[in-house]
């Protein structure tokens, strides 16, 4: 965890860790894991709200909890940029992390794979592997997506690749 800012570090320590090593094909064990995912997401979302650092919404899009959809946003120069967020829980979860997708940004940055999957290879995957099965969705958002948005949104805005929604409507 060297190189991470103290804020992220202290937030991370407060997100409840998970204990059940189970993926979507593991039946009852997956249900147990899903409960732990919820607990950890509830704690993280609540914490963000009380710290005035609310930055995402995420809900299971199917009863099995294998597909998740929502929104995430980032404030740059006092303007809020919001993106659709989606991902599937892979069959090999939690051995492999969920591949977080921002489909609206597909093709707008090199720091992304096909379909808008954000690149997590260097900054997040090693952490996930080291902390399997204790990290869950909340940790992936905190350590995977948040730093990605912080690094990429300013570049995307400054290079004109993305425009604020008000600016987009005003100019048209």
């Amino acid at each position: 965890m060297e190189g991470w800012d103290p804020n992220t570090k202290s937030t991370l320590t407060k997100i409840p860790l998970l204990t059940t090593k189970a993926g979507p094909r593991d039946g009852a064990a997956w249900t147990q894991r899903l409960k732990e995912e919820y607990k950890s997401l509830i704690a993280y979302t609540g914490m963000n709200k009380s710290n005035d650092n609310d930055w995402f919404r995420i809900s299971a899009a199917n009863p099995e909890g294998t597909r998740w959809t929502g929104k995430c946003w980032y404030v740059h120069n006092l303007l809020k940029y919001e993106f659709d967020l989606q991902f599937d829980i892979p069959v090999t979860y939690p051995a492999t992390a969920p591949e977080l997708e921002l489909p609206e940004l597909d093709g707008k940055t090199h720091k992304m794979y096909r379909g808008g999957k954000i690149c997590l290879t260097v900054h997040f995957k090693p952490l996930w592997a080291k902390n399997c099965p204790r990290f869950g969705i909340a940790h992936a958002l905190c350590l995977g997506l948040a730093p990605w948005l912080a690094a990429e949104v300013p570049i995307l805005v400054d290079s004109g690749m993305i425009k604020h929604k008000d600016a987009a409507t005003a100019s048209s």
């Binding site: 899903l34 919820y38 299971a60």
Partner: peptide, 19 residues
């Protein structure tokens, strides 16, 4: 972190949706 099993999955889902 043990003893999470006492809680119901639906209840947890509702809690997250409320947030």
């Amino acid at each position: 972190e043990a003893s999470t099993s006492v809680e119901d999955l639906e209840e947890l889902r509702r809690q997250l949706e409320a947030l």
